[in-house]
Amino acid sequence: MEALYLVLPLALLFSASAVGFFVWAAKNGQFDDLDTPAMRILFDENKHTKKTNPPNKTTPP
């Protein structure tokens, strides 16, 4: 059970970093507007330039 002395702080560090990430996101304004981005995601940004899959690209084995 001595592993607890290592795992417990690690787990806490983990949740602390999650909170930290949330704080960063909130301060960045990620939660200010919850409606517009849901629609913004529908737009195909660069239809003409952005080709994700070049035709000659082979799929990895």
Binding site: S15, A16, V19, V23, G29, F31, D32
Partner: peptide
């Protein structure tokens, strides 16, 4: 107001994480 809102959200997130742990 936006500032207040963000602060409130952060408070909720922090207390929520603490409560869970």
């Amino acid at each position: 107001q936006q500032k207040e809102d963000r602060q409130m959200l952060i408070r909720i997130a922090l207390t929520g994480a603490v409560a869970g742990n």
